[in-house]
């Protein structure tokens, strides 16, 4: 009985996260991507569908659903179908461990905000999931039976593997500081202004650059470099299958922003204000404040992702590999070493 109730609560939380966080978040990110791109290029951007063009992403999705779903004759149909599903599933799965707030006391029981933020392998789970994400792209490239798709898929796998090392090592240094891979505990440790970015500035920088590469965003969007690869791994995808890759990309951006917020920028912590207003730990008001704090921080990072996309030109492939292996990898090792030495001295 206990198990069933736990399962139902978990299921309900998952539904809430899916329909109130990921889908509106991704469509909002798409809208702001187009709007900010336009503003940076001295244009206005979509402003016709609904007030301020806010319904534009919905119109886009309706268009995608009604488009013909084309599968190339030479494609491997099973994998061609499977690839976007893998992509989107893994993107959604990452959100399971992200803590959106601390907890609310309902019936004397603390209900944690997040599907399963207390998993004690939190960070490892996120790393595992993001490295699984490469299967979606590589499979899409391979199953399309198109040279551009294949090249895009290969690039994405090479790129992700190269940058995962630097990302993992920057997290190793962070774990040495925090002493736990549990995301909820990591955020709890950052109460007040003790944000991890103050202890791990280099680690944060490496994590930031690596997450740009992991989410395939400019300046590292080699897998879909239009001038040379047409559309990259999603050249042969149409309709909602393309939409899934699109949704997965923005879902990944939000997930990466949420990870950076949780790991380095205090997650849902609200400094000073709770004490000032006298809010009780576990009360609904404090939980709302925490969720708001988390959302604002994530939104700033999403904005940064978009801002960088419309500023920095794409790297060349050899430059990308050189940056990954010859700069970020040694830098993250040095970061681990320095962190260890400082901890030894203290």
């Amino acid at each position: 009985m206990e198990l069933l109730v736990d399962f139902l609560i978990g299921f309900l939380k998952a539904l809430i996260v899916l329909f109130l966080v990921i889908l509106p978040g991704a469509s909002g990110a798409v809208y702001f991507e187009r709007r900010i791109a336009a503003w940076i290029q001295m244009r206005i951007g979509p402003n016709r569908v609904g007030p301020y063009g806010l319904l534009q992403p919905i119109a886009d999705v309706i268009k995608l659903i009604f488009k013909e779903d084309i599968i190339p004759a030479a494609a491997d149909k099973r994998f061609h179908f499977l690839a976007p599903l893998i992509s989107i599933t893994i993107t959604v799965a990452v959100f399971a461990v992200i803590p959106f707030g601390h907890y609310v006391v309902i019936n004397g029981e603390p209900v944690y905000l997040g599907v399963a933020p207390n998993v004690h392998v939190g960070i490892l789970y996120v790393l595992a999931m993001t490295s699984m994400g490469v299967y979606g792209l590589t499979l899409a490239g391979w199953a399309s039976n198109n040279k551009y798709s294949l090249l895009g898929g290969l690039r994405s796998s090479a790129q992700m593997i190269s940058y995962e090392l630097a990302m993992g090592l920057s997290i190793v240094a962070l774990l040495m500081v925090t002493g736990t891979p549990n995301l909820m505990e990591i955020v709890e440790q950052q109460a007040g202004w003790r944000w991890n970015v103050l202890y791990q500035p280099l680690g944060f920088l490496i994590f930031l650059v690596a997450s740009f590469a992991e989410t395939n965003r400019t300046p590292f969007d080699l897998p879909e470099a239009e001038p040379e690869l047409v559309g990259g791994y999603h050249t042969e995808y149409t309709g909602m299958k393309f939409g899934m890759f699109f949704l997965a990309e923005y879902g990944n951006v939000i997930a990466a922003s949420a990870m950076m917020t949780a790991l380095f920028f205090g997650g849902w912590q609200v400094p000073f204000l709770p004490e000032l207003l006298g809010l009780q730990e576990g009360s609904v008001a404090l939980a709302l404040l925490q969720v708001a704090s988390f959302t604002i921080k994530v939104a700033i990072f999403v904005f940064f992702f978009i801002w960088v996309r419309w500023t920095v030109p794409r790297f060349r492939y050899d430059q990308l590999m050189r940056l990954g292996w010859k700069v970020l990898f040694p830098l993250s090792l040095a970061n681990v070493l320095i962190t260890g030495l400082v901890m030894l001295i203290n």
Partner: peptide, 21 residues
């Protein structure tokens, strides 16, 4: 240089727009 570039694009972001509605 990236920071400088970001500064320029941010200036464009909040600056006047060319579009005629």
């Amino acid at each position: 240089e990236i920071a400088r570039g970001l500064g320029i694009t941010f200036k464009m972001l909040i600056g006047p727009k060319m579009t005629i509605q």
